[in-house]
Amino acid sequence: MTGKAQAHSAAMASAWGARARLGLGMALRHRSIRVGGVLFGFVVLLAVFADLIAPFDPNKNNFRALLSAPDAVNIFGTDAFGRDILSRVIHGTRLSLLVGLLVVVATGVLGVILGTLTGYLRWLDGPVMRVMDGLMAFPGILLAIALAAVLGPSVANAALALTITFTPRTARIVRSSVLVLKEMPYVEAARACGASHTRLVLKHILPNALPPLIVQLTFVFSISILAEAVLSFMGVGPPPPTPSLGNIIAEGRSYIQEAPWVALTPGIAIAMSVLGLNIIGDGLRDTLDPRLRNL
């Protein structure tokens, strides 16, 4: 690499860093993002440090303490196996976030690839988007349940089913951005200067298509957490005794009057996760969309 090129790269990196810091600063100034961040950050901390925070082994039965009410030992009570609800919810949160993260990453990668290709290469647009339309014709959660039922109950299969369900929507958003951006004058100018297709896409189109994608992915994350809970509730999530927020609620629904803590505690964890992510998503949308920034 020549000295000039090195200097250019360093300048670019510095510019990117500055933009990132600026973006982060703007985001943190947004009240919704701060509130959502606190809520979701708390849930993330629980999930990451589950092994340290959970007071008991989440799968440890105690047949002498079935459906015990909350007390000093089991502060959120026990379930029908005598297992500590708090420990199960903490580990279940980890699993829900793991599934959500896997879905976000896989959906993001697939959505960007498919959306960019179909938006940029018109000959691919028709065939690929018709397949996406076909997948979107099914109600999302119904498709996920059907796929998970066919694939079998496991964490990986739940993530795969949700990825297949949410990828078409993400791809559509990226595609629509690419369709607009590729006709923008600055892209035309770069093309006129002899920029290759790869350079045009990676340097000039994709970076500007990211803001709506980021907002979309926060919603995919929250919907995935909810959907994973639904799959587990329906019995097509991870197999027992693996704790997940959905299967803890499913186990508790028969005792909702006698032992409400079994279903309520994971319900609160789901609500915190989804609320936090949705608020963050709203804030990011406001921050990243110049039209909404000053409203």
Binding site: N59, N61, A80, F81, P240, P241, A250, S254
Partner: peptide, 16 residues
């Protein structure tokens, strides 16, 4: 199966 909760609870304990 989960249809008869006794079956699934017994299975989980047996597995442990």
């Amino acid at each position: 199966d989960p249809n008869y909760a006794e079956h699934s609870r017994a299975a989980v304990v047996l597995a442990g």
